[in-house]
Nucleic acid binder design. Structure first.
Lengths: 244, 244
DNA sequence: CGCGTTCTTGATGGGGATCAAGGTGAGTGG
DNA sequence: CCACTCACCTTGATCCCCATCAAGAACGCG
């Protein structure tokens, strides 16, 4: 198969890898997606990609960097609702005049692009649908974490989820990945204080469950870890999402 | 406007009222929806409407009764992910071969029907989209509850949400509604034990925040209550969802 | 009336919050 | 090259919210 130079080059982008794993893309879709990624723009860390209550802008795709949906309470308490990684989508909802249901903030410098519109290519449309289903599955998993897991389980379960997602888009290799989150951010996601996150991470290190130095995390044995927390794994198998 | 007898009669169903408030429905859509509701079937309490990991069946609409998305852990811990009320939809996702990401169980006897397919009527299609957006907003609210609210706040906030939703479909009048949930079910939703739910409800009663006797709840002053928990209200205004 | 479910209340303990103080490392400027 | 700073990590001490265990009381139902 012959592709323009741009498309060939963008094939290695995490965002491209994720979407092409979610559904089979034909050459036209691949080229259009690669061209879109080539036009990505930068959003600096701490800037907002979306503001709660305001209109959702154009449909967007995260090309690089980490972002999070955030809710801040009147007294300053903060909750991260979900993390957005390269290959994740923003604002795909099908509604005519959607209003953002939460703020999305860039945790690191982030680059985003406007991918081909839903409906333009069958494969991409399917990938968008599956992406949205996965996003919902992650929300459900997060509810279970916060409702019924203790601090140990929450941290291990979240790191397992991140490892899965980063493996899908190629940013994690052999259960090792860069984690650009402070322990305070982890606490904001997990409903814990940074102090307690720290203690739990210490014991996880001592137990040999993981390594975490200089922003890089390595999970010793995800399978064993998953059994420890009774984690239900969400897999993607040839176009269908599967839970087991 | 002249409608068949069936349609006129079904206009008062909570499911009908909810969808017709989410978006403007033309006469054709109203008739089709009323006819669908007329064909509703019963699902007994404790039966599953959807099983995690299995294929999602046909697109369905809850006509009467309460259901919940549930996740049960290996050791028996249980988490309710969300509640489904009359007018809520099941299995609207646009994906070709969707797999259920969670079990849905009937909490009371439930009647469900298969509403007009997405795309058949523009108004209904819009209503389906908005319904899905609201559902996601409720998941986000639930994450915040579980992550950053204490027991007091969790109960008050959840009752406020239920009051809003039941007001939308006409099942709550003047902040008073039937609540067919045991305190244990509330605990399973809120990540608390039934014992602690009980104690918090007692104090809420003593504080004059609510009445709850014989399965009927009355909120004394939702506005005051909402201010107490710093609740962000999700409103529906002429086809667009709005958060404030 | 008897029985199971749900609600209620008490006693006790633990998981995680809170408050407080270092320690560490990267970047900055003199 | 070293003091300085700022963000983040680490550790200790104390407290409280909520889980747990246990046992009645109230309610609905056959």
């Amino acid at each position: 198969m012959i592709r323009p130079a741009i498309a060939l080059q963008r094939t290695f982008e995490p965002a491209f890898r994720r979407l092409s794993k979610l559904a089979a893309l034909d050459a036209g879709a691949e080229t259009a997606l690669a061209a879109a990624i080539d036009d990505a723009v930068l959003v600096q860390a701490r800037r907002e990609l979306l503001s709660e209550g305001k209109a959702v802008g154009p449909f967007r795709l995260i090309v690089a960097g980490w972002a999070a949906r955030v809710r801040v309470l009147a007294d300053g308490r903060r909750q991260f609702l979900s993390f957005l990684l390269p290959g994740d989508l923003i604002g795909h909802c099908g509604q005519s005049h959607p209003i953002a249901s939460s703020t999305i903030a860039a945790l690191t410098d982030v680059t985003v692009c406007t991918p081909p519109a839903p409906g333009a290519f069958a494969g991409l449309t399917e990938a968008y649908h599956i992406s949205r289903a996965l996003e919902e599955a992650h929300l459900l998993a997060h509810i279970t974490r916060l409702g019924r897991f203790n601090a140990h389980e929450r941290i291990r379960d979240l790191l397992l989820e991140l490892n899965e997602r980063l493996t899908l888009n190629g940013m994690a290799v052999r259960d090792s990945f860069d984690l650009p989150l402070t322990q305070e951010m982890l606490g904001d996601a997990l409903g814990l204080t940074s102090v307690h996150v720290n203690r739990m991470v210490q014991t996880a290190r001592r137990d040999g469950d993981l390594q975490w130095r200089g922003g890089r995390v390595t999970l010793t044995d995800p399978a064993v870890l998953a059994r420890k927390v009774g984690r239900t794994v969400v897999r993607v198998t040839g176009g269908a999402t599967e839970v087991s």
